[in-house]
Amino acid sequence: MTYPVAQLLTASTFHPIKNELAENSIRNALEKFTLTQDDAARIREFISELRSCKNISVGRANKLTFTLVAWRRFIGPFSGNTIGDLYAAIPELRNAKSYRERPFKQNTTADIVAILKQFYHWMIENKYSDINENKIHKLRRCNHGPKSMPADPRLPITTTVQMNMLITSFFWVPMLQ
């Protein structure tokens, strides 16, 4: 029995990833005065270095660019920020909403902070920022607070394994010999 061969879809036909999307994002932010010319130049240089030295894909370059452009909602121009500005931006990010008016998911905030840390490590390495590198390293991903805490703080946090053990021990009846 023969089966028809399915047409192979490449990444470009299924999810078109274009080089110009990142540049359009930077250009739009410049037009809206969200980014400064200096910020745009730093982002372009950062992405160019990663594309040439670490061989990142177009999709990854786009994600990094979009994230850095979006970070400017929370902080000032990249080269003028202090560690205090970055510390103040993390709680703002935790409470912020996406452009769809939904709170950011925990994984998203972790990605955003990781990208900011990567960018600032690069800026420090290239002498574009005077922030202490150890302070950048201390930045942690966002914790969404009440959602990750138990309802009653007096209750111990239990895992699924602990709960299963409790249920099993409750219903276990020793066999009589």
Rank of each mutant, 00 (worst) to 15 (best):
L86N: 00
T160G: 12
N143R: 00
L9C: 08
D38C: 13
K147R: 11
Y3M: 15
A70L: 15
R27Y: 14
V173N: 03
E49H: 05
S98E: 04
E49R: 07
S25W: 13
Q118T: 12
I75T: 12
T109Q: 04
C142V: 15
P150R: 03
C142G: 08
S169H: 12
W71L: 06
R154P: 00
R94F: 00
L86M: 09
P4I: 11
L155M: 12
T108Y: 15
N143F: 00
A22N: 06
I43Q: 01
C53A: 08
R72K: 09
N55C: 09
L93K: 07
R60K: 07
A22I: 01
N28G: 03
P156K: 03
R44T: 13
L176D: 03
S79T: 09
A61K: 05
A41K: 04
P156H: 01
L21V: 15
A89V: 01
A22C: 08
H144L: 02
L64F: 14
D152W: 08
N107P: 09
D39C: 10
V113K: 00
L21K: 09
N19G: 15
L93S: 02
F104P: 00
L176F: 14
I75H: 05
P4R: 10
T34Q: 07
A41I: 12
E49N: 07
Q37C: 04
T159Q: 02
I17R: 06
I157F: 13
A11K: 11
T109L: 01
E20H: 08
V58S: 11
F78W: 08
A151Y: 02
F74M: 07
Q118D: 15
N19Y: 05
I112E: 02
N143A: 00
F78H: 04
W122T: 10
R27F: 14
K63A: 11
L64K: 06
L139Q: 04
K117Y: 08
T36P: 04
A110F: 09
T67R: 00
R141W: 04
I157A: 06
I124M: 05
K147F: 00
F74P: 01
L155S: 02
A29I: 15
V113F: 01
S79G: 10
K18S: 09
I136S: 02
A96N: 08
M123Q: 03
E125T: 14
S57P: 08
L30V: 05
S48F: 14
F104V: 03
A88R: 04
P4F: 06
E31P: 01
P156D: 05
L176C: 06
P103D: 01
S169W: 14
L68F: 11
A29R: 00
E101N: 14
N107I: 07
T160C: 07
A22Y: 01
A22V: 12
Y99S: 04
I75K: 04
Q7F: 04
P146Q: 15
